[in-house]
Structures are given as structure tokens and as C-alpha cells.
Amino acid sequence: MVREEVQQLINNLIQIEHISTTLYLAMSAYLDRKNYTGMAKWLRLQSDEERTHLLILIDYLSGKDGVVKLTEVPAQPTNFGTPLETFQRVLEHEQYVTNSYRQAYDYVKQIDPQTTVIVQDFLREQIDEEAQSLTIVERLKLAENNPSALLIIDQELGQRQNGPIAAG
């Protein structure tokens, strides 16, 4: 049986991934409604990736005979502003997720080596998550309000294909 404090820690990470998947799905729907279909696709795939993370954590905790506690997810907004404002929020959220995994890693490394490995895998993946988000934000800043530039970025983001998930 997993220690109570580790169980609480994993359940907290499960909640964060659950919020992430719904946040990105709401952003995807919003940008799709604004006809940024490529950005919407990118965010939909990001939502799918966060759901995969959620399931990995659930399976991990269940496999250690822990109790998974799925709590209520707050309602998500329906308006996220410009594409730049939307992806700035993505970047801020990814930084929050990184910080959450960093704190979890710092705590769990003292008491549970097995859990440390899975948390470290997710923490390692966050390097790429933040870098992708930052690149998109910086490109959207360069585009400013140029419709042609925004459409090119939209097309490029629409080419995203989900590959294998590193943490798992």
C-alpha cells in the first residue's frame, strides 16, 4: 500500500492533469469558434496528451493499491481573448504544472524512490511543454495583429501530430 502522503501527492497531480485537459479542450473549442482551426487542433491534441498523463497517474496509484480521488473540476472560461492571450495562458499554466511537479519531486524523493521515477519523468517532459508554449507565444508576438502571419502560424500548428508520450 502506498503511503498516505504519497497518495495525496499523486491525487493532487491527477487533479492538475484533469484541469489541464479540460482547460486545453475549452481553449480548443474557443479558437475553433474563432476559425483558428490549426491552433484549435494543437490544443485538442494537447488536451489528449494531458488526459493520457492523467490516466498514467491513475494507473500508477491504482497499481500501488492506492485510492484515486477524482474531485470536481472547475468550469472553464468560454473566452480566452486573442490567440496570443490564449497561448500566454497556456505558457502560464505549463509553468504552474512544472512547479507542481518540481515540488512533488522535491518532496517524494525523500520518501518513495518508485514514485520519484514517475514524477521525474513528468518533470522532464515539462521542459518540452514549456519550450513549445514559449515558442508559440514568441511567434505570436512577432505576428502581432498581422492576419497573414496569424494564419501561417495557425496552419503550422494545425500540422501537429501526437507522438509517443514520454512519461509512462
Rank of each mutant, 00 (worst) to 15 (best):
W42D: 02
L134P: 03
M27C: 08
V137L: 09
A104T: 02
N35V: 15
L9W: 02
I153V: 06
L54N: 05
P113R: 09
A131Y: 03
N79P: 14
E125D: 01
K141W: 13
L142C: 14
S133E: 01
T98R: 00
Q155C: 08
T52S: 00
I153F: 09
I58K: 03
R44F: 12
E85K: 12
A143P: 07
E72T: 15
R51N: 14
K69E: 05
L123K: 01
D65G: 05
T71Q: 13
D32V: 04
L43P: 04
S148N: 14
H18V: 07
Q120S: 02
I56E: 00
D128L: 07
G81Y: 03
S20I: 05
V117W: 02
F87M: 11
T115Q: 02
I127L: 00
V119Q: 03
A75K: 09
G168D: 00
Q15C: 10
L23D: 01
E17Q: 02
A26I: 06
V90C: 06
Q159H: 15
A26V: 02
E125V: 11
Q132A: 13
D32G: 12
K69G: 11
L134G: 03
Q76L: 11
S100K: 02
S133F: 04
L151Q: 11
P113H: 09
V68I: 06
S47Q: 06
K141R: 10
S100G: 06
L157D: 00
M39V: 11
G158A: 02
M39F: 13
L142G: 11
K64M: 07
L91Q: 12
Q95Y: 05
V67A: 12
K109M: 14
P83D: 14
S62K: 11
Q103M: 11
I14P: 06
L70G: 05
L61S: 00
L84E: 09
L70T: 12
R89C: 02
Q132P: 15
P164T: 01
I136D: 12
L142K: 15
L13F: 03
L134S: 11
L9Y: 04
I152E: 15
S47F: 03
L13T: 00
Y101M: 01
R44E: 10
R33D: 14
L142E: 10
N99W: 08
H53G: 07
Q7D: 01
T78F: 07
T135E: 12
G66S: 06
A131V: 12
N162L: 15
G168L: 00
E130M: 05
V90Y: 04
S148Q: 14
L91R: 13
A166Y: 01
A29G: 10
Q110P: 15
M27P: 09
A75Y: 07
V73G: 03
L123V: 05
E50A: 04
E72A: 14
V73Y: 13
E49Q: 00
Y101P: 00
R160C: 03
T71C: 13
L43E: 03
T116D: 10
E125P: 06
H18S: 05
Q8G: 06
P164Q: 07
V119G: 07
V73I: 05
T115E: 02
Q114N: 11
P77Y: 03
I19F: 10
S47G: 15
G163D: 01
D65T: 06
L157C: 04
Y24H: 09
S100A: 04
L13Q: 08
Y30K: 13
